[in-house]
Design a protein around this nucleic acid. Structure first.
Lengths: 220, 220, 220, 220
DNA sequence: GGGTAAGCGAGACGGTACGTCATGTCTTAAC
DNA sequence: GTTAAGACATGACGTACCGTCTCGCTTACCC
């Protein structure tokens, strides 16, 4: 999401010092900017995220902002990606159902944060008529989260709940979970209550393991 | 969604002439405005929908536009609701699976239209920080579509596929179907291929009827 | 200097009412804007004349400013022309020398006003690399003042001080008077004292009437 | 006009080596910078003279530029002074009229160069609201040129054209010549044709020597 | 059929954000 | 201590859109 992230990664990969000529960029500015962006998103929604206000609140000049992120979209992607990167699948899941429930609960909690939901929906909205933006969102925001489904599948296989990994269609499961939670929390605008989480988890688990108590793939 | 729709409906309901004093509103303006709005949404996305351009393209003054809809949001809601109102569940479904498949296919097709997806996502995005807007969207755009799920449930019951209507959680099913299709088409940005529709339909049908070939509720 | 001055003049010439469709422009805004521009020029010089500050000080939106004047240059030309338009040649001149002295004194006084000198020099400076601007300045600001020289020549002829109007080269006299006063007041930066005015007037009068006490054109 | 020119001159005067501790300043940078400044002035006018572009075109860092000249104004003064320093009064003048004509022609030619006129007018414009800048311009740019008038007066006296040097008011003559040429060339925007130069020269010569063929100061 | 009230087109209006550019200062590592 | 490179705070630029307003004109009904 950064201007020169690719270049930076390359230099690090070959072990070269990340030093460039000229005055180095302020190391504190990035964090201050992202924090300001999140605060403004939480306070004023997508329309409240203005580059001028972000700069002012971060104690930074607009030029400094634009030097790092070329647009409001770039900035929002960075903020969203950072927040989504904190999603984890905890180890304590005894079975697949618990893992599903846990990821639903955590994702719903994340969408409960106003800065998260306004940024995410603002980006998705703008991406509907901007294929390049849509690709970037998918690559930098959405796809990385599929790791949660992949990991959940691996655990289920290790536990013997499923025998063939092909039984779990990662992309479909991801779209069902992410889409349904977004729809419920943001569109239907109802809180993700414990009861709802249980009902949805049952729905997903039933679809994945239709015959509880029987082997997923009967020997006959 | 209209300025005085409630009043108009009431007057019509009691048989009173809808006539008011003064020059009556142009009868052709509404359609021209909505058509212009849809065209602009299709061409320029949510940002391309500007009130000035809508007025110009509809051959109407901005005054006329604002007299009918109070804001860009109102106008977009009207345009979206009109499009969504065309969704139907055809009679020819032999079983629940076919009905599910059909509604998924039709909804995905609707989201394939750029004016639909940009308006819908633009509204949802703005609604994340505007509770009043969110309520209006839910009441005028989202909830009316739940009729499709209600009708599908009634058919399944009539066919004997389900015995207790309580087995079908209308709100949850609706969120799963709508949310997943939106996520797949708009976020994951992949076409709603026949193959994908089959896979998703199987997923939903499995969750609803986990034991095909057996009674949903075994007599014992 | 105005957006549609030509059009306005034309309409007035044919006696048509100056009414146009749409909301008419605020009649007070023009004066408020020009007053604000002059105040800012006086306080902050040419660099202090910013469109944003003019709008704020005039209690007007920037759009209103740009609707009337397309640029800072247009605005400055309007302000300068208005001030220069007040220059007059009083009737009380008994002879050519008195008329010269008077116009020098008045022009020097005008250049003593900071809003006048900053606007004038700012325009001239920018016009050195902008032929279109230079032409506009000449036509709307400079050339109209040559009327003073023309009128002075007519008076001198009426008094018999000169016999052939060709003796007075209007353009040259104008450049000498205007240029010398500007150079003295703005570049040499010395006040236009009475003593200096007398010396300069003598210089010009001597050049124009080299043989005082003798007929300008000796009979022989 | 240079940062440390006085210091440098002093050191050279006493024969001390101009060496100071640390890396010595590049000896070629000054010329490269001034050349770049003149080129940018000629191409883009006063607004085209940006410190960043000067540095880039001179192949020099902005640091280097600001170490030598404190501001854009300083740099422009240096460029202008260097160009004006080339003005000379040739020896071949047979009489005062020829000397006047010659200086007018040379000054007009100098103002015909775009880098000269844009820089000069830019500086004068900014100086109208900056007394310190005005003083520097007068001292470093304007006043040194008065030597031409002084020299012309000395020659006229040597030739016997005038008897009392007091007859020639140096400051006034200078303002008349410089001001009129600037007004004609830059404001009235007409070329300094031979014909115009002749007319202006006659004007000035008449004012200075009103009775050709007679002694300027009759013995009686 | 004249009065009255609202609709209508046109466009001015105040406000706000945009993304770019220039100034003059500062901070690095290299020379 | 100079140099190249470039980051930095500040602030103006001219454009675009929003939603409101103010005109003169038009179109209906209602007395």
């Amino acid at each position: 999401m950064h201007d020169e992230s690719a270049e930076t990664a390359e230099r690090r990969a070959v072990g070269a010092p990340p030093q460039r000529i000229g005055r180095p960029r302020s190391t504190t500015a990035d964090d201050a900017i992202l924090a300001a962006a999140r605060a403004l998103l939480a306070e004023g929604g997508w329309a409240g995220l203005t580059m001028g206000d972000v700069a002012t609140r971060a104690g930074v000049a607009k030029t400094t902002l634009y030097r790092r992120w070329h647009s409001k979209h770039d900035l929002a992607i960075a903020a969203v990606a950072e927040m989504l990167g904190t999603l984890r699948l905890p180890d304590r899941g005894p079975d697949l159902r618990a893992d599903i429930e846990d990821v639903v609960r955590r994702f719903a909690a994340l969408l409960g944060r106003p800065e998260m939901r306004t940024a995410l929906m603002g980006l998705v909205a703008d991406s509907t008529s901007d294929p390049a933006l849509r690709r970037r969102i998918r690559e930098e925001v959405v796809d990385p989260q599929k790791r949660l489904v992949v990991e959940g599948r691996a655990r289920a296989e290790a536990r013997g709940e499923i025998t063939a990994p092909g039984d779990i269609d990662v992309d479909l499961i991801f779209d069902v979970i992410a889409g349904t939670v977004v729809q419920h929390v943001l569109v239907s605008a109802e809180p993700a209550s414990d009861n709802w989480i249980q009902r949805f988890t049952t729905f997903v688990a039933t679809a994945l393991l239709p015959h509880p108590g029987q082997p997923a793939h009967p020997p006959a």
